[in-house]
């Protein structure tokens, strides 16, 4: 086993070096920024004061204090986590059958089916959201059809546009491939002999799924959930466009700090908290996944 270790470490060198330069270094710049004052006209104030040739540090904890001053930021975080959990679950429910179907179809069609999952995403994000806005529009065909049906059964008409439903639909839509792709990569390599054997032993369809396919696919689900959960947590464009008057998430407030109130230090504080939350959730998730897998 000794001989394996060195080349594994060697493997990790290039990505590690790259991420240290282009991710860790800038992140430390921003972490440092959380202790600095905001510049009067935006950006950051200098972190030192020059008095009679003497340099003194001009740093502060007030940005962190503001975070805990009131409960609005906590409530925002909880709300965002709620959306992220809901989106992840829906993506899982929708993505699983799709990934399974692709993994079980003939080799010839697999590439094409996989490509079809991702194709819509080469059109522009905004164009896709606008397409959904056309669908949700009160004068749009879908809404009218739906309300026609509701009218038939005597229910009150609904507004889809600018509702949490619309937001959730788009969140799921935008992140679905990030669930399907890793899930497929996992399901694809499952050994069908196992399933055949189980069938020979008389296990039913569902039993085979729960006892074999599902546990084997847990690493794929974990990877997919991470890829969906985290970006949703920091999302701001969809709440901006479709959220109506209440659809605000933590991402929007972070964006406000950088783009509207010119408060980079506080924006950095919120971002750091978000990043740490997300990484914690992910590490926890993958540890759970690993434990179950190693059962």
């Amino acid at each position: 086993m000794q001989r394996k270790a060195w080349y594994k470490y060697l493997l990790s060198l290039p990505p590690m070096a790259y991420l240290l330069i282009f991710f860790a270094a800038p992140t430390f710049l921003m972490l440092f920024a959380t202790f600095r004052y905001a510049g009067e006209y935006g950006g950051l104030a200098p972190w030192y004061l020059q008095e009679g040739g003497r340099l003194t540090m001009d740093l502060t904890l007030e940005n962190w204090q503001r975070l805990v001053e009131s409960d609005i930021y906590l409530r925002l975080f909880l709300k965002s986590i709620g959306y992220a959990v809901a989106t992840t679950l829906i993506c899982m429910i929708m993505g699983y059958p799709l990934a399974l179907m692709i993994a079980r179809s003939g080799r010839k069609h697999r590439d094409l089916l996989l490509l079809l999952v991702i194709l819509p995403f080469w059109s522009n994000f905004l164009v896709r959201i606008y397409a959904w806005m056309i669908i949700f529009s009160p004068v749009g065909a879908l809404t009218r059809m739906l309300n026609g049906l509701l009218d038939l059964i005597g229910a009150a008409p609904v507004t889809l546009m600018y509702s949490p439903t619309a937001m959730l639909v788009c969140l799921v839509y935008v992140h679905l491939p990030f669930m399907v792709l890793p899930l497929y990569a996992n399901l694809e390599k499952h050994d069908f002999d196992l399933l055949d054997a189980a069938q020979d032993l008389g296990a039913g369809k569902w039993r085979r799924f729960w006892l074999i396919t599902w546990p084997l696919s847990l690493p794929g689900i974990t990877a997919g959930s991470i890829l969906v959960f985290i970006p949703v947590l920091g999302m701001f464009a969809i709440p901006d466009l479709l959220g109506g008057t209440n659809g605000i998430m933590i991402g929007n407030v972070i964006k406000q700090q950088f783009m509207e109130s010119r408060d980079w230090p506080f924006g950095s504080v919120l971002s750091m908290v978000l990043t740490v939350t997300a990484v914690a959730v992910v590490l926890l998730g993958s540890r759970l996944g690993a434990r179950r897998e190693g059962r």
């Binding site: 990505p15 240290l20 270094a25 921003m30 950088f258 978000l274 997300a278």
Partner: peptide, 28 residues
């Protein structure tokens, strides 16, 4: 599993809000 630091370094960019990453890279 022996590498503890790498997963963190790899996962954190996914977790970091886009704006922060944009601004921090700009600063760099």
């Amino acid at each position: 599993n022996r590498l503890r630091f790498l997963p963190l370094l790899v996962l954190a960019p996914i977790a970091m809000p886009e704006i922060l990453m944009g601004v921090s890279l700009l600063l760099l």
